[in-house]
Design a protein around this nucleic acid. Structure first.
Lengths: 230, 230
DNA sequence: AAGTGTGAAGTCTTTCACAGCT
DNA sequence: AGCTGTGAAAGACTTCACACTT
């Protein structure tokens, strides 16, 4: 209870969620040979306001130079360090359906900071397949990962119905962070960090805004609105 | 300037983002034959607190019965209506790589409220392929969708480098909401709604928490803290 | 008795605007 | 002169706790 998932002596959640964006923008600047950048410029590249950017960075420390701006490579390093990307985190992906395959070969993992150490699937027909250089293993391989202590981040890409079972297995194997792409609610122990990405949810949020744009009216107490015009 | 993308006479963004979760939980209850539910129970199924749930629902209207709870099917309908899911929104997916294929066949679209009307890809080698019953078309097909007025929500599943170009094309074709799975920042006109889903970002946020768990101490500079006090 | 709906208090986040350093 | 870093103000969101309804 009093132990929030958020006992932070340090960096606010909202800030943490934006740091990856800054890091990416800095990477692009590096690629273009830019070595120094102002908060105004970096904010523009990242799609936030400069005040927000400065406040965010101020939580990491004082890495800018007044009157000048930020050194691109130094700031990149500091953000990487704050995010814990100066070492590699082992990632296990469970569920090698379309989505799992996409994730396994997605460039996101190529980003420094992560290494896919195992691809798992429940289906014997899928086990043994080679995806992006890794052989798909059965769920029982979790025991090995657990013993090796090489389970740290787990990604769930199974159908929604299996998500809780998979999450339980991951937690039992020592995984302490879970990224859930399967729909539905998954419960994990207090000390395990869980994040959720769901296509339906995203689409439904967009639908809300589409409707607002079109409808205009749609207030709560308006009873039955016109049925399908189509 | 003062014109926020967010002039809401109605429902707070944070609430809108949770409504899909309630809707899913209600669907499960319906499947189990439950016809009435309390805020406590529905909150538990949705992974939120009951106070938050009640406050959220209060923004839609007063659809509960004191001393009793909520009627499952009526509440489902009201949430669907609030989200704009009482009609179908046409969705265009651009980029038929691994991710695009996964999205095209993902159950998320099967959820009532959306219809995939086109799959597009820039690569002539991919055009013509049939995925989940739809034939992949070239980017030029956007002109047709635009003329039909059947472009409403666009999903970008291309490599990051093409994202801005694709977004521009979608907007030109009349798309008013965009869901971007490609990394990087994409700019769209004020009136177009944009949401972003990025694997790297999610992993990096998890890495932060993993590190916090492990590292414990190691805060960057303590010197600066003292400075601010003087 | 049970459980919703909601003001009010509390917490977190963003924005403002400017002091302070280079 | 220019740009960062940051208190203070404003705003958004969450939690509390209870009046009110069935």
């Amino acid at each position: 209870m009093s132990a929030e998932p958020n006992a932070k002596p340090g960096i606010p959640d909202a800030t943490v969620a934006r740091l990856p964006g800054y890091l990416r923008a800095l990477g692009q600047l590096t690629g273009r040979g830019v070595s120094s950048v102002s908060s105004e410029e970096l904010a523009e590249s990242s799609g936030v306001s400069s005040a927000k950017l400065r406040k965010d960075l101020s939580h990491l420390g004082s890495y800018g130079v007044r009157g000048v701006g930020y050194d691109v490579s130094h700031l990149s390093y500091q953000i990487s360090r704050a995010l814990g990307l100066t070492r590699d985190w082992p990632v296990v992906i469970v569920g090698m359906g379309n989505l799992g395959r996409a994730l396994a070969s997605y460039g996101g993992f190529a980003t420094k900071g992560f290494e896919v150490v195992a691809l798992l699937d429940h289906d014997p027909q899928v086990v043994g397949a080679v995806i992006d250089g890794l052989t798909v293993e059965p769920m029982s391989a979790l025991a090995r990962l657990s013993a090796e202590g090489s389970a740290s981040i787990g990604v769930i890409a199974t159908p929604a119905g299996s998500a809780q079972t998979v999450a339980d297995a991951l937690v039992a194997a020592g995984v302490t962070s879970v990224l859930n792409f399967a729909g539905g609610v998954v419960h994990v122990p207090e000390e395990v960090h869980l994040r959720k990405v769901d296509l339906s949810t995203e689409l439904q949020i967009l639908a809300f805004h589409e409707q607002r744009r079109a409808g205009g009216a749609g207030l709560p107490d308006v009873a039955q609105v016109a049925r399908g015009m189509s």
